[in-house]
């Protein structure tokens, strides 16, 4: 058997919608503290792969392991629900459209799940909210509702919300794609900070510069397969595959 001691392991991931195969036998290992970026054209399956890790989009074949436990175990419905809810507490996720809870303040967004799932008292929860919102530079806006925040601020609160569950792994699904260009940097700064704290992260992104500067490894996906994989210095500067080169060429031109 291959090594389940690896921190995150995706083995032979396969996903089809009817006859459309969006993931074709993808395997990926991420070590503890590593930061992996997944890049590729839209429709390449990169978001689907990311969303398979916490079973938001269940795989049709293959396995996902986190820290020695299989995430997508086959269990009867009720047992599986219990298992996956437990697993998800350890996997933070940040979405392209933030998905903050609009009926709760920033503070409540952050404390809701820890209070509900970990039984934190009000004092503990408030302390946690201050800690996490301070980390993303949103302490002053603690009692604002999402509708009163800018896109960048919303995303920083969303990151704090995910971090409040003290996850072992963070997933970022195009976290800056919906932001105005001038707001991208404040979110990137937060992600950089997490990188410095050795948070294990898997990041689906369109931002090549950001990926190059923080990631240990880059995966280029196209049409449901990993075309090329390696350190950013190689994938970005000296890609082996023509498809990777074509994608980067198009993307870098587009950025100009």
């Amino acid at each position: 058997m291959s090594d389940h001691r690896k921190f995150v392991q995706i083995r032979h991931a396969q996903k089809s919608f009817g006859t459309l195969e969006v993931l074709k036998d993808i395997s990926l290992t991420v070590e503890r503290g590593q930061i992996v970026a997944i890049i590729g054209p839209s429709g390449s399956g990169k978001s689907t792969l990311l969303r398979a890790i916490n079973d938001l989009d269940p795989l049709t074949g293959g396995e996902v392991w986190l820290d020695g436990v299989q995430v997508n175990k086959s269990l009867p419905f009720r047992q599986y629900e219990k298992h996956i809810n437990q697993m998800r507490q350890d996997i933070g996720m940040v979405f392209q459209h933030f998905n903050l809870f609009p009926h709760m303040t920033a503070r409540e967004n952050v404390t809701m799940a820890p209070k509900m799932l970990k039984g934190l008292s009000k004092e503990e929860a408030d302390k946690l909210a201050e800690e996490q919102l301070d980390k993303v530079g949103m302490l002053e806006r603690m009692d604002y509702y999402p509708s009163q925040l800018s896109g960048g601020q919303k995303q920083r609160v969303a990151i704090a919300r995910a971090l409040a569950m003290k996850p072992k792994l963070m997933l970022f699904d195009e976290a800056t794609s919906a932001l105005d260009p001038e707001l991208v940097d404040e979110v990137n700064q937060v992600m950089k900070k997490l990188a410095e704290e050795h948070m294990t992260m898997i990041i689906v992104t369109h931002e090549m510069d950001f990926a190059a500067s923080v990631c240990d490894r880059v995966l280029f996906m196209d049409q449901g397969v990993v075309v090329e994989e390696g350190p950013p210095s190689v994938v970005f500067k000296n890609p082996e595959k023509e498809r990777t080169r074509a994608f980067l060429r198009k993307h870098l031109e587009g950025a100009k």
Partner: peptide, 24 residues
């Protein structure tokens, strides 16, 4: 996305429903 965000944090279907979806 509201349900997804709630489920991602570890809330059960029912918890996501009464704490996140229903109030909205």
């Amino acid at each position: 996305g509201q349900k997804e965000a709630a489920r991602t944090l570890g809330l059960s279907r029912w918890q996501a429903m009464y704490r996140i979806i229903l109030p909205q």
